[in-house]
Design a protein around this nucleic acid. Structure first.
Lengths: 341, 341
DNA sequence: TTGAAAGCGCTACCAA
DNA sequence: TTGGTAGCGCTTTCAA
């Protein structure tokens, strides 16, 4: 509970100099630095957040968020957007402003362009739902090296110099889905999987976790086949699901590893077969389908957190520094059934 | 984003007076008050949290938490305690200190005594995992009317003048448990329920939600019978569960509505029958039993939140005031299976 | 009833 | 390289 002032009194060094030592701003002689550090140690100094929060107003921090457009592509990002806006309001009181730029989930160039825009216009940090592309990785590296921290959200690009990742542990989500499918089918089923483009959603990871867990724990659940949707399109999803079900009349369970639940579920209800459906995420269409008992259970991934947390991380990085920031902020695998949506 | 200073400049009234108006401290003439309120409206003034947080240090706030002892009675409260300690550390930076007093889950007098202790020793707010007793309700009313806000946690006493409640919506938890039991048993089972003392855990609410949902949605699940444990004792729980299972050999599903999973599950494994077990909470014994696939699924209630949130509410009440504080802060019904614990 | 000023802890700036 | 000072927004105290 020591303060900078107390350290100043103890060491007979001015508060400004103490500040320079604490925040490694340089321009301090080795002797005074050592003296100050000793006092910091002795008094067990910890920076006071309230003080910092007040002083940071003068910096007029600005953060940019590059987000897959929820309206044009994937409604999942609606809740991410909610999280962004809520946190942005919260940060207003600290003089922080937040701007969002929306991009396509497939076109890396719009994301790169937005990165440049934020980086070249004085923004102090960037969050991005990053497309899995080499160009993005390079751009993140460049921006980071210019001293602008970047946080990935929802989709990670590990080897890019980004400060942190917030989002799902996709492999685990797949395992949880398999776990539930096993419980619901009493460990006996013929299962099909509907997957999607691997550009954004790390769907391969989910499918992998799903298959691994089934293989290990449920010998009587057989993996019949998978269908892949490479477009962001409910109709395409309907068609590939229908084709899979037609081709495999024995399928009695379905794992929807990607977005596009409406199309897939329409094919399920059209088939008039009794199929246990396990999905991911919890957009409004999913909620409705759970109420209708078409989808039995879904694995959600806390989208509002994925919007809010990156901004919190960037704010912390700008105030208390990057020392205490971890690399991974995984969201829980949140199980939803019709009674807890 | 207006500040008190800006309002002062606009109205030619001093900052102290503005403060008196904003916080209703009185001693302001009607004319100036009106003038100030108009300016507040016009500039859309919102108090700045960072400023308040800094100034509040001088108050040296102290909060008391009255907690059912996790070590002597129910390990569930271990995680509540964790939440308390984490938030207490966080609040240290604002000059706040937090003290915990532990009580029995059955003896109301120790809780009343602790309430008096906190109230008579200058504490600025009290959180309590309240026993359902008339004496407690009266004491909460008394303390509240003395201007010390009280927040109930885990167990509510609505008609007591308490400021807010944080914790489970027990009825909903019961519904979720029934929902899952229905899914896992494919809507066909003979179910028994193990309940416990209704003093603390609102177990009646859970059982009610459970039965209501089964009745409404699963006509082929029959409710065979219930056993009640009135002691906080694993052995008692073992004995009553064993008795229930012996009495009803047809039981193939069990809902553990109360604490005491070890005893109940021992009776289940001893029986060598295949029984689908749905539990509540996620203490370490529960986790282990899920790994062993004795318990299929459990409904958790975010105990750390139940420790942290009451302190946050008391802090907000002491800084920004009680105007924006809601009455109910329900925790989600968190579904846990072996892959997401 | 009102105003002026100090102070909460930290940071930034200018002067030395 | 260091010190002094003003200021972030709010509260409190003392004086008028």
């Amino acid at each position: 509970m020591a303060t900078i002032k107390q350290i100043a009194d103890l060491t007979n060094v001015s508060r400004g100099t103490i500040d320079r030592v604490i925040n490694n701003r340089g321009r301090v002689s080795p002797e005074t630095e050592e003296k100050v550090r000793a006092a910091i140690e002795a008094l067990n100094y910890l920076p006071n957040k309230a003080g910092k929060n007040l002083a940071v107003r003068k910096k007029n921090l600005r953060f940019g968020f590059i987000l897959i457009s929820p309206n044009n592509y994937n409604p999942f990002f609606l809740d991410v957007e909610k999280g962004i806006k809520k946190k942005a309001k919260e940060l207003e009181t600290f003089g922080v402003s937040v701007d969002i730029r929306y991009t396509s989930p497939t076109d890396a160039s719009t994301q790169i362009e937005s990165m440049d825009y934020f980086a070249n216009n004085g923004y102090n940090g960037i969050a991005i739902t990053a497309i899995n592309s080499h160009g993005i990785a390079e751009k993140i590296r460049e921006v980071s090296s210019r001293g602008i921290p970047v946080v990935t959200s929802n989709t990670d690009i590990p080897a890019s110099g980004r400060l942190a990742y917030t989002g799902s542990n996709y492999y685990q989500c797949g395992k949880v889905a398999a776990n539930l499918l096993g419980l619901i089918t009493n460990g006996c089923a013929k299962v099909g999987v509907i997957t999607g483009s691997e550009n954004v959603m790390c769907i391969t990871e989910r499918s992998l976790g799903f298959r691994d867990y089934l293989q290990k724990h449920y010998p009587n659940i057989s993996y019949v086949g998978a269908a892949t949707n490479n477009r962001y399109d409910e109709i395409e999803n309907y068609l590939i699901t229908k084709a899979l079900l037609d081709e495999h009349p024995e399928i009695d369970a379905l794992y929807l590893a990607a977005a596009g639940v409406s199309g897939a579920c329409r094919a399920v209800t059209d088939s008039r077969r009794r199929i246990t459906v396990v999905a991911n995420d919890c957009v409004s269409a999913t909620k409705e389908l759970m109420r209708q008992e078409v989808i039995a259970v879904t694995i959600d991934q806390n989208p509002t957190y994925q919007g809010a947390k990156p901004l919190e991380i960037l704010f912390d990085a700008a105030t208390v520094g990057t020392a205490f920031i971890e690399e991974y902020y995984y969201t829980d695998a949140i199980i939803k059934v019709r009674t807890n949506i």
